[in-house]
């Protein structure tokens, strides 16, 4: 199981996966936007999205849990 956390305060611009989706190491899960910069959030493991805890338009804090990959 791998937890994916936010590295910084950001807005959730795009959510590219849904719970139940299979993902591979290197896939983009979510694109955050902070201070006019796009920051892709990348899967660092193969697996299935067990939990997805953000929605487009959310403002999330540094360390916020974005997704759990199993």
């Amino acid at each position: 199981m791998a937890e994916v956390h936010a590295e910084m305060v950001a807005n959730v611009w795009k959510v590219l996966v849904a719970e139940g989706d299979a993902v591979e190491d290197g896939d983009t899960l979510v694109i955050l936007e902070s201070m006019k910069m796009e920051i892709p959030v990348i899967a660092e493991d193969d697996g299935v999205i067990a939990k997805l805890l953000v929605a487009e338009g959310d403002v999330i804090q540094e360390g916020h849990l974005i997704a759990v990959i199993e």
Binding site: E7, M8, V9, A10, S34, M35, M37, I39, E62
Partner: peptide, 13 residues
Amino acid sequence: YAEDPRRFLPGPG
């Protein structure tokens, strides 16, 4: 800028 001085990624707060 409000960004880290190594990678220049945003760091608001």
